[in-house]
């Protein structure tokens, strides 16, 4: 094969006038980075990002189709190879699930009985929006997905996103018809969680690999975290509902406690956006005072 530019005279040696614009733009982009240091979430950037997201969504929709088709075919071949083994596995799982279903049904009856007895106010239910993954950010320092549902479908920034296995992350940007989902594994992701069985609250923080860590643990004497303990959302902060399954404690060392996520990002295609509105009719004392006065008037 002939090598490009073999006659080295061609092209080289001309006065490089383009260098000036290169240096100028390089400096300009550094200024932008410095600006990002202090205003990463400036509204102008957010607006630009969500606008481009809406523009790119149709392109990504088209591009993701052949990719998923190929993925599906590879999956099919693997399924054919493992059909017997999978069949056996599914039977076992089915038996186990049937036992769980019966237990859940009887528990549901019990809970509704207690709710009636104690006249409990049930928590508001969450609304779900189904969406498809049309994009996945593949940079070294970003773990995010792009979904084909946006503000028009009721998706808002802050909403949790789950798949059949567990929680995936939360929405950080909602365009008109597309939104960006920050995965639990991203460095900027921190989710308030509770470790079941130990009743310990913590923050689940991503660290760019498949196992995020538990930080800022609320330490309690006599409580020991053990591998296998379930980690679910705590609902602290009022953005996410309580009890969304996240994963299990995988390793406990002096330095770090890591969590194995239930959700498998590699096979995630269909997701549900959890639109949860935290009850907000709790008012502060100052706000309550005039309301009480008004109430008094009408009653009196």
């Amino acid at each position: 094969m002939d090598v490009l530019g073999q006659s080295r005279q061609e092209g080289v040696g001309r006065k490089e006038t383009r260098r000036t614009s290169l240096v100028f733009l390089m400096s300009f982009s550094f200024v932008m980075v410095i600006f990002s240091l202090y205003g990463a979430n400036a509204s102008v950037f957010d607006k630009a990002r969500s606008t481009l997201l809406d523009f790119a969504a149709p392109v990504l929709n088209v591009l993701s189709k052949p990719v998923k088709w190929v993925d599906g075919r590879i999956g099919d071949v693997q399924d054919y190879v493992n059909v017997m083994e999978q069949n056996k596995q599914l039977r076992e799982e089915n038996d186990e699930l049937r036992i769980w279903m019966n237990e859940a049904l009887s528990l549901r009856r019990q809970v509704s009985y207690y709710e009636r007895v104690y006249e409990m106010q049930p928590l508001p239910g969450a609304q779900f929006t189904d969406a498809r993954v049309i994009g996945e950010t593949n940079g070294p320092y970003t773990r995010a997905m792009i979904l084909n549902a946006g503000r028009a479908q009721g998706v808002k920034a802050g909403n949790a996103v789950v798949n059949a296995e567990g929680m995936l992350g939360h929405i950080i940007e909602a365009g008109q018809g597309a939104s960006r989902l920050l995965l639990l594994t991203d460095f900027n992701s921190s989710t308030p969680v509770v470790v079941e069985g130990a009743d310990v609250e913590a923050i689940l923080a991503g660290r760019f690999n498949n196992r995020p860590q538990l930080r800022f643990l609320e330490r309690r004497d006599g409580v020991v975290l053990q591998p296998g303990m379930r980690v679910v959302t705590s609902g602290a902060g009022g953005v996410l509902p309580r009890g969304l399954p996240i994963g299990e404690v995988s390793r406990v060392t002096e330095k770090m406690i890591t969590v194995d996520l239930y959700a498998n990002y590699q096979s995630t295609d269909l997701v549900r956006v959890v639109n949860f509105d935290f009850p907000k009719d709790v008012t502060s004392e100052e706000e309550q005072a005039p309301e009480a006065a008004e109430g008094g008037d009408t009653n009196g």
Binding site: R18, S21, L22, F24, L25, M26, F28, S29, F30, V31, M32, V33, F35, S36, L37, A40, F45, A48, R49, L52, L53, A56, T137, G139, Y141, T142, A144, I172, E173, R180
Partner: peptide
């Protein structure tokens, strides 16, 4: 250079990361 800048900024916006990183 402006073409490179456009590629970088587009990638920054598409990836949703901080502005100017990929451009620089």
């Amino acid at each position: 250079a402006p073409a490179t800048f456009v590629i970088g900024v587009t990638q920054d916006l598409l990836m949703g990361g901080p502005f100017g990183v990929w451009a620089s």
